[in-house]
Amino acid sequence: MKKKIISGLPNLLESLKEERENQIREVTVEHVITHGNTAAINGQIFFAEGGRLEFCDVYRFASTVKTAKIKEIKRYWIEQNF
Protein backbone atom coordinates (compact mmCIF):
# COMPACT_ATOMS: atom_id res chain seq x y z
CA MET A 1 0.00 0.00 0.00
CA LYS A 2 1.32 3.42 -1.00
CA LYS A 3 1.73 6.00 1.79
CA LYS A 4 1.16 9.66 1.05
CA ILE A 5 1.72 12.69 3.30
CA ILE A 6 -0.98 15.37 3.06
CA SER A 7 -0.86 18.54 5.16
CA GLY A 8 -3.89 20.82 5.61
CA LEU A 9 -7.53 20.72 4.50
CA PRO A 10 -6.96 22.41 1.09
CA ASN A 11 -4.32 19.80 0.24
CA LEU A 12 -6.60 16.98 1.42
CA LEU A 13 -9.44 18.20 -0.81
CA GLU A 14 -7.07 18.54 -3.77
CA SER A 15 -5.79 15.00 -3.21
CA LEU A 16 -9.36 13.68 -3.13
CA LYS A 17 -10.12 15.49 -6.40
CA GLU A 18 -7.09 13.90 -8.05
CA GLU A 19 -8.22 10.43 -6.99
CA ARG A 20 -11.74 10.95 -8.35
CA GLU A 21 -12.82 12.06 -11.80
CA ASN A 22 -16.00 13.42 -10.23
CA GLN A 23 -15.62 16.92 -8.66
CA ILE A 24 -16.34 17.36 -4.95
CA ARG A 25 -19.49 19.41 -4.35
CA GLU A 26 -19.62 19.35 -0.54
CA VAL A 27 -17.88 17.87 2.51
CA THR A 28 -19.98 17.30 5.64
CA VAL A 29 -18.48 16.47 9.04
CA GLU A 30 -20.80 14.62 11.44
CA HIS A 31 -18.60 13.95 14.47
CA VAL A 32 -15.17 14.80 15.82
CA ILE A 33 -14.17 12.80 18.90
CA THR A 34 -10.96 13.23 20.91
CA HIS A 35 -9.56 11.43 23.92
CA GLY A 36 -5.95 11.33 25.09
CA ASN A 37 -3.67 10.92 22.07
CA THR A 38 -6.47 9.67 19.78
CA ALA A 39 -9.02 11.53 17.64
CA ALA A 40 -11.61 10.49 15.05
CA ILE A 41 -13.69 12.33 12.45
CA ASN A 42 -16.47 11.02 10.24
CA GLY A 43 -18.75 12.45 7.57
CA GLN A 44 -19.61 12.42 3.88
CA ILE A 45 -18.14 13.73 0.65
CA PHE A 46 -20.75 14.57 -2.01
CA PHE A 47 -19.75 14.62 -5.67
CA ALA A 48 -21.10 17.04 -8.31
CA GLU A 49 -22.17 14.28 -10.71
CA GLY A 50 -23.88 12.21 -8.02
CA GLY A 51 -22.79 9.68 -5.48
CA ARG A 52 -21.25 10.12 -2.09
CA LEU A 53 -18.41 8.76 -0.04
CA GLU A 54 -18.81 8.02 3.68
CA PHE A 55 -15.50 8.43 5.53
CA CYS A 56 -13.96 7.93 8.94
CA ASP A 57 -10.40 8.93 9.85
CA VAL A 58 -8.80 7.82 13.12
CA TYR A 59 -5.70 9.74 14.22
CA ARG A 60 -3.07 8.70 16.75
CA PHE A 61 -0.79 11.49 17.96
CA ALA A 62 2.76 11.19 19.31
CA SER A 63 1.59 12.55 22.70
CA THR A 64 -1.31 14.37 24.35
CA VAL A 65 0.10 17.93 24.07
CA LYS A 66 -1.75 20.34 21.75
CA THR A 67 1.26 20.65 19.42
CA ALA A 68 1.81 16.87 19.07
CA LYS A 69 2.46 15.56 15.57
CA ILE A 70 0.27 12.91 13.99
CA LYS A 71 1.90 9.51 14.36
CA GLU A 72 -0.66 7.43 12.43
CA ILE A 73 -3.87 7.85 10.40
CA LYS A 74 -6.28 5.06 9.53
CA ARG A 75 -8.88 5.94 6.90
CA TYR A 76 -12.05 4.06 6.04
CA TRP A 77 -14.19 4.87 2.99
CA ILE A 78 -17.54 3.47 1.89
CA GLU A 79 -18.70 4.47 -1.59
CA GLN A 80 -22.46 5.10 -1.95
CA ASN A 81 -24.55 5.41 -5.15
CA PHE A 82 -21.79 4.93 -7.73
Rank of each mutant, 00 (worst) to 15 (best):
M1L: 06
K2G: 13
K2S: 10
K3Y: 09
K4N: 13
S7P: 01
P10W: 05
P10E: 00
N11P: 06
L13R: 08
L16V: 12
L16P: 03
L16N: 00
K17T: 06
E19L: 03
R20G: 01
R20P: 00
E21Q: 11
I24S: 10
I24H: 09
R25D: 12
T28V: 15
V29F: 03
E30S: 14
E30H: 12
T34M: 11
T34P: 00
G36E: 05
N37G: 07
T38M: 13
A40K: 02
I41A: 10
G43A: 02
G43Y: 04
Q44E: 07
I45S: 02
I45N: 03
F46S: 06
E49N: 15
E49K: 12
G50I: 00
E54K: 15
F55C: 00
C56E: 03
V58A: 08
V58W: 07
V58C: 08
Y59D: 00
Y59S: 00
R60E: 08
R60F: 09
A62D: 04
A62V: 11
T64I: 09
V65C: 07
K66A: 09
K66G: 11
T67M: 12
T67H: 07
K69G: 11
K69W: 02
I70L: 12
K71M: 10
K71A: 12
E72M: 08
I73C: 14
K74W: 14
Y76A: 10
I78G: 09
I78R: 14
I78M: 12
Q80F: 01
Q80L: 02
N81Y: 07
F82P: 15
